[in-house]
């Protein structure tokens, strides 16, 4: 649909024209509705996170979301542009960024991350719909400016939880991913891994709760399951074919349920703006994410590769959009093939 032409200069004569060819179908699905659905889908994981890591998880998420909204509002205000706060996309970015950070992250640090995500990654490129990489993941990559903070993980359980204002008495522990990177999954059962009662980023630990959110999004038709299935499937296949420790099946399930695979595949790789439009493109996108994730996990110095995999594939979307473009109506087959 074409952009509505707005004449806001004189509000007295305010009118809005939409210039596009027919059909002029109206859809109740607006950005706001979609983003609200995404937020609802993210809710189970947040509740889980509070259970595993204490109330600091909730605070970090709220601070992050609020900061994102503030930066979005502030930037649009300073640049004298229409406010886009009400489409809720900034809230989603804030929540997602909180989900991919450790619960012990200082509040000032996540606010810097929010600034990076909203102002540098999203608004400087033109605001919603114009960013070329996922803002939350780009901000996570930037937050690795503080590698020690970003790789400190608290042990799950209320008694180990970090305080809301101080993280001093939090009990730290290695994550299942670190154990897998070192050789094999130890000390954590597969069930715990699926429920999410393990160390890791704030919102990524619970495979089950994230899957519930994913199912809601698929039922509401907010996302198609193509990218998540291709992504998770690829990780599973590589885990099955090339296990590094344990037995094949355990390794495969652990690969899929640990780290950010579920969160990345369901909520981040499916971001409309930074994923391909065509079916074939989406499948290649998902497979690419899976392969890069596993390559980084197996051969990289760092034990998790989901965020970098998605960022790298984000940069390929321009090319992937050219794959599998439908034939123009009435165009001869040959010509379409040539193009």
């Amino acid at each position: 649909m074409a952009e509505p032409i707005k004449q806001m200069k004189n509000p007295k004569y305010f009118y809005e024209l939409t210039i596009s060819s027919s059909p002029h179908a109206h859809s109740p699905v607006t950005t706001q509705v979609i983003m609200r659905d995404v937020l609802i889908a993210l809710l189970p994981a947040l509740i889980g996170s509070v259970c595993f890591f204490g109330f600091r998880a909730l605070m970090v998420t709220l601070v992050s979301a609020a900061a994102c909204v503030f930066f979005e509002w502030g930037y649009r205000k300073i640049m004298k542009k229409d406010s886009t706060v009400y489409d809720l996309s900034a809230v989603v970015t804030g929540v997602l960024l909180a989900y991919v950070c450790p619960v012990t992250i200082p509040y000032w640090m996540i606010i810097i991350g929010d600034f990076f995500a909203i102002v540098l990654v999203k608004q400087l490129f033109g605001g919603i719909g114009k960013n070329f990489v996922n803002p939350a993941l780009a901000a996570r990559a930037f937050l690795f400016s503080w590698p020690v903070v970003m790789s400190t993980w608290v042990k799950p359980g209320f008694e180990n939880a970090a305080g809301i204002f101080s993280t001093a008495d939090a009990v730290t522990a290695a994550t299942p991913l670190a154990a897998m990177h070192a050789g094999s999954l130890e000390g954590v059962s597969l069930l715990e891994l699926m429920v999410g009662n393990v160390g890791g980023c704030l919102g990524e630990t619970s495979a089950v709760l994230l899957l519930i959110g994913g199912a809601y999004l698929v039922i509401r038709k907010v996302i198609t399951p193509r990218i998540p299935l291709a992504f998770i499937g690829t990780v599973a296949v590589i885990g099955l074919l090339f296990p590094q420790g344990n037995d094949r099946i355990t390794w495969m399930l652990a690969s899929v349920c640990s780290g950010g695979v579920m969160l990345g595949a369901i909520f981040m790789a499916t971001d409309y703006v930074t994923s391909p439009i065509t079916k074939a493109g989406q499948i290649i996108f998902g497979i690419g994410c899976g392969v890069i994730t596993m390559v980084i996990r197996y051969f990289g110095a760092y034990n998790e590769g989901v965020s970098y995999a998605i960022l790298v594939m984000n940069a390929c979307v321009v090319l992937l959009d050219k794959v599998g473009r439908p034939r123009k109506f009435g165009a001869p087959k040959k010509e379409a093939a040539k193009k």
Partner: peptide, 16 residues
């Protein structure tokens, strides 16, 4: 110590 963003003295920071 601990506050500065290390990435700014790496190539990424140069581009930014």
């Amino acid at each position: 110590e601990g506050v500065p963003a290390m990435l700014m003295v790496m190539p990424v920071g140069g581009f930014l």
